[in-house]
Design a protein around this nucleic acid. Structure first.
Lengths: 193, 193
DNA sequence: GTCTATACGGAGATAGAC
DNA sequence: GTCTATCTCCGTATAGAC
């Protein structure tokens, strides 16, 4: 089996799998469907991945790594704590949109991962959420909000994650509108949208 | 096949199915597992439901009907628009907790429904969300908030629905704390938690 | 790295006796 | 209303040639 995780070919295959898993669900997507979409026969699939679950893991991991990279970049150009909060919200929405398949899969198909895979991905997720923890903590220290920081972080991330259920970027609302309204809610400022 | 949807027996079976679907996912739950948990053989299952998808439909429908009933009741005793918003949030969280299995299934297993089933359930959901539409509209008319009502409703419902991912009622936070913080965010009031 | 061929098990669903 | 028995199909995964 080919274990080179960074090969271009492998990334293509993972993206194709992400789309199918997103559209039809992991369990309902057969390895034959995956192979068809990849332009190979089902037996050949197992040259790239040791089993079906590993494909699922690869899809979710790639989405998470990408999200962390975007958050890191966006955060770098923010100065005030409010700007940082806005940056995180914008970055979060960007990855949800640009990498939608992988994130929808991460949300819906968690249960189909082995315990070992889950543990690995939980570490990634925690690392990502640490940025949120830090920025919300900064907002509190700056006197912009008070109250339960964990609760505020979870409500905010929940509202953002749920956007995959209803948001279509071709409507009137821009991702930046969403981010602004979310920040306004968290910081209890009047709506700017 | 027994079509009596309101029989006590049927409700028991639906509750059992909800638990299994919630724990393992719809596709990963076999009709043999369902039958085992119900104390019958797999063949007997099809005396109660015409096929597996109908069980999924029954689980989700029962959760939605219950949610609507709770919302109706809770709303009846609220007077001001802020009280009504709080009532809706509390009712939403109550049903998410009391009827958690069915709602988790509704969130995760939507894709496994036939188009016909989906259409029926979308009608129910829209009817439910109408309460939210009306109450948020009232809050705007009362001058408590301004901005995009649809966006505010969706962010609020998203934050609430996402609680199934992290909230455990045995912690320090009560459901009422959650509802209060959510209302405070929506109405841009200081955190009361 | 892809192919063909196939093993093996378990899935949903049905028929008909009791 | 439940049972037993069984059908049929399709799932994941493997083996070995090219």
């Amino acid at each position: 089996m080919n274990l080179n995780k960074n090969s271009k070919r492998r990334k293509e295959l993972v993206a194709i799998a992400a789309r199918l898993f997103c559209d039809q669900g992991y369990e309902s997507t057969t390895v034959r469907m995956l192979a068809d979409a990849m332009g190979i026969k089902s037996g050949s699939l197992f040259h790239h991945f040791s089993d079906k679950q590993e494909i699922l893991y690869a899809v979710i991991e790639s989405g998470m790594l990408h999200a962390m990279e975007i958050a890191r970049q966006t955060l770098a150009s923010a100065r005030t704590s409010k700007e940082k909060l806005h940056a995180l919200a914008r970055a979060h929405l960007s990855t949800l949109l640009e990498d939608r398949d992988a994130h929808v899969v991460a949300i819906y198909e968690w249960r189909s991962l082995t315990q070992e895979s889950r543990d690995l991905l939980v570490e990634l997720r925690d690392a990502y959420e640490t940025s949120w923890r830090e920025v919300i903590s900064e907002c509190h220290e700056a006197g912009l909000i008070k109250g339960d920081q964990g609760l505020q972080r979870r409500l905010a991330l929940g509202a953002l994650n749920w956007t995959v259920q209803w948001y279509h970027p071709d409507g009137e609302l821009t991702p930046d509108d969403l981010a602004q309204e979310l920040v306004a809610m968290v910081l209890r400022e009047p709506s700017a949208v």
